[in-house]
Simulated scan of single mutants.
Amino acid sequence: MSETTHGVTTGAVARRLGVSPTTVRSWEQRYGIGPAVRASGRHRRWMPGDIALLEEMCRLTATGVPPAEAARVVLGQQPGDPRGGGAPPGTGPAADDGPPLGDVRRECRGLARAAVRLDAAAMEALLGQVIADHGVVAAWEEVMVPTLHAVGRTWESSDDRYVEVEHLLSWHVSTALRRAAMAGAGAVEGPPVLLACVPAEAHTLPLEALAAVLAERGLPFRMFGGAVPAEALDAAVRRSGPAVVVLWSQARSTASHALARHVAGTSFGLRGARTTPLVLLAGPGWAGPPPGDGLLRPGGLREALQVIAAVYEDPGHGSGS
């Protein structure tokens, strides 16, 4: 179905713009910014010209212009005029689409716009919807990561103007991933995948993404989070008897190969049937010489998932000793 001839629904246009459907309906009810043509029945269909007006509303409100004033500008009104004439679609200032995103899913653009406006409700709705529609892997690789990188590049090149945007966006990404992870946490018995950042590493989002993917695939896991002390990591391995341990390091300064080798050599279980875990060195901090025995360095989320799934497909998972 062509958007040009048939239009899109309110929900679809809201996701594209990074606002909630309630916001779109509010702008229509309060300021008259609505579809020029209505489909039969109660359903609204937004045509390209209608969407152009909404994009301009988003651009103006993102810069701090009050919605009522933004609506007057969008509709070509002067202050005090009850309605005024509508400006031809697409003739206003160029829309500020937020940070540059490249050729990625439309959800990226909507999420970036919502982040720039500090619209928490819209970010929560968008992130939940993209996970539901596309799954965790696609949501992480094609929407969350590109948007986070774009926002990060923007504040780095704009005198830190977008620091608050990146912090809020990161928090909502983390919330969405944890919500997805908790939906399946504890539902599966058996030796878990242990997820932990090395002691000096606090960057947890990639591990949270992996936890959400494992929950989505029905694989057991234990998430220990950021900066796990070496002694605590050792105790966690011995107590939980994991099939796989994933250690995240974002930078070479935080990677500890000695700790990774220690974990890979830790045995547990009954005498005569003791096992050791497979250790995955995840993150750019582990770049360098090939890892030793019992250690693997996956190239990304998908490869880590493939390795872990293969371990659980093998009835005798656990490397043995």
Rank of each mutant, 00 (worst) to 15 (best):
E303W: 01
A181Y: 01
V213K: 06
Q78I: 13
T154Q: 14
R297T: 12
E142L: 14
R15Q: 15
P289V: 11
D314V: 08
P289M: 08
R179W: 05
V37T: 14
R161D: 13
G294T: 08
V145M: 09
A139E: 01
G76Y: 03
A94Q: 12
S20H: 00
G300F: 09
V74G: 00
D133V: 12
I51Q: 10
R16V: 00
E156A: 12
A183E: 15
R42D: 15
P99K: 00
R297N: 10
R16M: 04
L210S: 08
S240N: 11
L54C: 07
E124N: 09
S267K: 02
G300N: 10
E313S: 15
L278F: 03
G265L: 01
L278W: 03
H203L: 11
V228F: 04
R42K: 12
G41P: 02
P88N: 13
A14N: 05
L148Y: 01
V193C: 10
A14P: 02
L210D: 05
L214Y: 12
L126M: 10
Y162A: 10
L177T: 01
I33E: 02
A183M: 09
D314C: 13
R261G: 14
H262W: 08
G76N: 04
T5H: 11
L195R: 12
I308F: 09
T63P: 00
E3Y: 07
G190C: 07
D103I: 08
A71R: 05
A273H: 14
V163E: 02
R117T: 06
V165P: 00
D160P: 04
T275W: 00
E56K: 00
H317E: 05
P229D: 04
T4G: 01
A115R: 00
M1A: 14
Y312P: 05
P93T: 06
M57L: 15
A120P: 00
E56D: 14
A36G: 13
R161I: 00
D159K: 00
A255C: 10
R113N: 15
V246D: 08
E231S: 09
E124L: 06
D103C: 06
W248C: 08
G283Q: 01
A150E: 01
A125F: 02
G218Q: 08
T276G: 07
R238E: 15
G98I: 01
P79L: 07
E107V: 14
R16C: 00
G85Y: 07
T4N: 06
E166T: 01
G7F: 03
R238F: 02
R178G: 11
P229V: 05
G84T: 04
P229N: 07
A176V: 06
W155K: 01
P79M: 08
